[in-house]
Amino acid sequence: MADQFRNSITNQEPAKPDEVSCDFCTEPKLKALKSCLVCLASFCETHLEPHHRGTAFKRHKLIDPVKNLEDIMCQKHDRPLELFCKTDHVCVCQFCTESDHKLHQVVSLKEAYDGKKAELGKTDAEVQLMIRERRLKISEARQSVELSKKAADREIADSVKVFTALISCIERSHVELNNVIEHKQKTTEKQAEGFIKELQQEITQLEKRSSELKQLSHTEDHIQLLQNFKPINIPVPIKDWTKVSVHPSSYVGTAKTALDHLTNTLSKEMQRLILDVYKDRNMTAAVAGGATAAHRQLLIGMMRKDPSVSGGLPMHQSHWMAMTMTFDRVLANIKTKYSVSLEPEFSRDEVTVRVKAAGGSSTVAANSLESHAFRALLRLYQKVVTSSTMPGVPEG
């Protein structure tokens, strides 16, 4: 008998780490063949033999080997959990259906298992669909970025060509303007030289006549004076210069006026172009909701308490651009009125604008000026953020 027992053990395999081992084997523990819901133990083939032969074990229920048998037993009735209560979503034993879950909807574990498996399959299919949809969105986003990059590169190349042509045109116009001014100056010089030459000739004639008159006035010979007086007294053929003059060329800042007008026009057109670019929702979609909402919340918090001048005013770059372009005069007025400078510090899409008083102010006076200027800037920022029609500003 003992030899037969030893031989049966020898023919069985030891339990692997992920397998249920026999609770009655000494080391090495053998692989369990069945678990008993009455004994709450697992048995290898050899130690399971009494359950097959003994009369006392006939009512014991054997199941496939399970680890932690206590987890599949009802803690209240000490019976195996064989049913599932759909009302309370818990596993129950047969006795539970006659007490706490008497009027509840109860099904077998297999039916509940199959239902949950089907539900899991459906949920997994939905999850897989969402994964595919999001991967498609990622692909579309990357494709959009690539297309946007190509469009941006083309636009930059075109802008380089346009501005190069514009600079060339300005340089060419500058040369032409200088040539016109120089030609006008040469014409004035030539006209003046002609007048000067003619005047010098008349001066020579007049000086000669003056010499003859002085010589005749000094003679003591009466006859000679009278005989020569008439020829000498004949007027010299000269021009009336009273209405003749050389007028200096008048430019009155023509070039400066034209350049100022050109600069102003170009600046306005560039501002309009830049704002048109910021109107594109494809560019601002990434920050349209989160950035503006966050900045609005930050702004509300700052307006409810004394703002921190030292910390500066944080905002999105598009807001700062809108302020500098649309409210440039207001910003200039703030700087002039309070004698401060506005110093933006850029970090990715964020800008922190710091207010600093001009040098020479005392500490108390500087703090006061900075505080007043900061509040004025904060009010202007509030106007930009809360405006839903501001061009180029992301809406919340």
Rank of each mutant, 00 (worst) to 15 (best):
V107N: 06
L103N: 15
T123P: 00
D114A: 13
S99A: 15
L30S: 15
K31G: 15
E133A: 11
R59K: 08
K117T: 09
P80C: 07
T87P: 03
P50D: 08
V90H: 04
V92S: 05
Q75Y: 13
K116V: 01
G115R: 01
H47C: 15
C96V: 09
T123E: 13
V20N: 08
T97L: 02
L69G: 09
C74D: 13
D78Y: 08
Q128T: 05
V90K: 10
F84G: 05
C96R: 03
H52F: 09
E126H: 02
E126G: 04
C93T: 07
D114Q: 13
A118F: 02
C36T: 03
F24G: 12
A41W: 02
D23C: 04
D88R: 07
E98K: 15
H52R: 05
D23A: 04
E49I: 05
L48A: 10
M130I: 04
F24Y: 12
C85E: 09
G121E: 07
P50E: 08
D78C: 09
H101M: 13
K29N: 14
L48R: 07
A56P: 01
H77Q: 12
G115L: 00
M130R: 15
T46A: 14
C39V: 03
V20S: 10
Q94W: 09
E126M: 00
M130N: 06
S99L: 15
I131P: 03
Y113S: 14
H77E: 04
G54Q: 12
S21E: 11
A56C: 03
D88T: 06
H47L: 11
K58I: 00
R132I: 00
H104W: 06
Q128H: 02
D18I: 00
S35M: 00
E45S: 15
C25G: 12
